[in-house]
Design a protein around this nucleic acid. Structure first.
Length: 112
DNA sequence: AGTCGAGCGCGCA
DNA sequence: TGCGCGCTCGACT
């Protein structure tokens, strides 16, 4: 994947995150499960380790309870929330409204 | 509602 | 090898 022989967990995470469309969000949990693991924290680690914040929309990855999680190495970074609001995500306090509706699922077949 | 603690898998020192 | 993390879940306030 991505043509590098590393094919690391991190590469896979970044590859998935890249496919999230604007106006949608996903969760650390979904990414981990999509990769067949329970390493939720490792997903966060991978994004923190993200070297291409330009091409990787890591702000579209939030926690399962709808709170925004961290961004650019900082927890509760308000910049992340602001970016999402620009893309059309609405918030109630620090949590995403209608997370289920705005959720980007990697498996379309589940609701087709 | 909110807080807390244990578990979890992977990266990096 | 070991430790910590942009998390999660269940138990308890």
């Amino acid at each position: 994947m991505l043509g590098n022989n590393k094919d690391s967990f991190t590469s896979k995470v970044l590859c998935l995150v890249k496919t999230i469309p604007s106006g949608k969000v996903t969760t650390y949990k979904l990414i981990a499960e999509r990769l067949g693991t329970k390493a939720y924290r490792a997903v966060g680690n991978a994004l923190k380790n993200n070297k291409n914040p330009i091409v990787i929309p890591c702000h579209r990855v939030v926690k399962s309870d709808g709170s925004v999680g961290g961004y650019k190495g900082r927890l509760n970074n308000p910049e992340k929330k602001r970016l999402l609001e620009i893309e059309g995500i609405t918030f109630n306090k620090n949590k995403v409204n209608d997370l289920k509706i705005n959720l980007f699922r990697f498996y379309d077949k589940f609701y087709k």
